[in-house]
Amino acid sequence: MEFSLDKFSVYILDGFRKDEAEALFDAKIEYFDKLSIDDVRNIKQMAETATSKIAFFINEVGFEAQNALLKITEEPPQNVYFVFLNKELLLDTLISRAQIIRKPSKRSIDDEIERLMNSDKEEIFSYIMQLKKDEILTFTEKLKDTLALKGEYRKLEKLSEMIADFKQFNLNEQLFLANVFDCIMEA
Rank of each mutant, 00 (worst) to 15 (best):
residue 80 V to Q: 01
residue 161 E to S: 13
residue 85 L to C: 02
residue 58 I to T: 01
residue 44 K to S: 08
residue 60 E to C: 10
residue 41 R to L: 09
residue 16 F to K: 03
residue 110 D to P: 07
residue 101 I to A: 01
residue 50 A to I: 04
residue 166 F to M: 03
residue 119 S to A: 08
residue 135 E to K: 06
residue 99 Q to P: 13
residue 92 D to F: 11
residue 30 E to A: 13
residue 110 D to T: 08
residue 118 N to D: 09
residue 180 V to E: 00
residue 64 E to M: 12
residue 91 L to S: 00
residue 100 I to C: 05
residue 63 F to T: 14
residue 101 I to L: 01
residue 36 S to T: 09
residue 45 Q to H: 12
residue 53 K to E: 07
residue 27 A to K: 02
residue 70 L to F: 05
residue 9 S to G: 12
residue 169 F to Y: 08
residue 33 D to C: 12
residue 88 E to N: 12
residue 110 D to A: 07
residue 146 T to S: 15
residue 35 L to N: 01
residue 75 E to H: 04
residue 67 N to V: 07
residue 71 K to F: 05
residue 106 K to I: 13
residue 44 K to R: 10
residue 94 L to D: 00
residue 148 A to F: 14
residue 9 S to E: 11
residue 47 A to V: 04
residue 6 D to N: 15
residue 82 F to H: 00
residue 38 D to P: 07
residue 81 Y to E: 01
residue 142 K to V: 07
residue 114 E to A: 13
residue 6 D to C: 14
residue 63 F to H: 13
residue 175 L to P: 06
residue 7 K to C: 10
residue 121 K to Q: 12
residue 57 F to Q: 00
residue 138 T to M: 13
residue 8 F to N: 11
residue 158 K to M: 10
residue 2 E to R: 14
residue 64 E to I: 13
residue 128 I to Y: 00
residue 75 E to G: 04
residue 85 L to I: 05
residue 10 V to S: 03
residue 82 F to C: 02
residue 109 I to R: 01
residue 57 F to I: 04
residue 147 L to W: 00
residue 155 K to P: 03
residue 127 Y to V: 05
residue 65 A to E: 01
residue 50 A to W: 05
residue 102 R to L: 11
residue 26 D to Q: 10
residue 42 N to D: 09
residue 3 F to T: 06
residue 175 L to D: 08
residue 58 I to S: 02
residue 14 D to N: 11
residue 185 M to D: 07
residue 54 I to P: 05
residue 9 S to M: 10
residue 90 L to K: 03
residue 164 A to S: 15
residue 156 L to R: 02
residue 177 L to V: 06
residue 6 D to M: 15
residue 150 K to Q: 10
residue 56 F to H: 04
residue 150 K to I: 10
residue 91 L to V: 04
residue 7 K to L: 13
residue 68 A to E: 00
residue 5 L to K: 09
residue 89 L to P: 15
residue 172 N to C: 05
residue 74 E to F: 06
residue 5 L to Y: 11
residue 127 Y to A: 02
residue 76 P to Q: 08
residue 112 E to R: 08
residue 55 A to N: 01
residue 96 S to L: 04
residue 166 F to L: 03
residue 25 F to A: 05
residue 127 Y to W: 05
residue 161 E to Q: 12
residue 168 Q to S: 14
